[in-house]
Amino acid sequence: MKIAITSQGETLAAQAEERFGRCRWILIIDTETGNLVARDNEIQRDAVQGAGIQTAEKILREEVDCVVTGHCGPKAFRVLQAAGIKIYLGAEGTGEKVLKDFQEGKLKLAETSDVEGHWV
């Protein structure tokens, strides 16, 4: 299974990022091989609007099964959901901890977005 974690840094040692759209890095992890790829998402920090949409689109290209992040707004949620990607919310702490929490089933599968869009 492939999962995407929003992160403040390029490795699992870095803190996971709670904000979905404006996360600095996206970590793509293959849970079978343990392979990790870090995708730079800096460009979305300066987006006037729609950062969540574009971050979600970037994740679609990675063909992941699920996304793990802190919070997710309605537009990004729509993009991920339309592509059949599962969204887990409530990520806190380092990437390693988040990955462990996820594998132990401690994070909740989101049925809807949990925050309002920021309209920017």
Partner: peptide, 26 residues
């Protein structure tokens, strides 16, 4: 192909492998 989404400066489109969405409000 995603050309529309790459062009849009207002991030109003999202295109995946089999999905394409329009965010009219943006």
């Amino acid at each position: 192909c995603g050309d529309c989404s790459r062009f849009c400066r207002f991030n109003a489109l999202a295109v995946g492998k089999k999905t394409a969405l329009v965010f009219k409000e943006l």
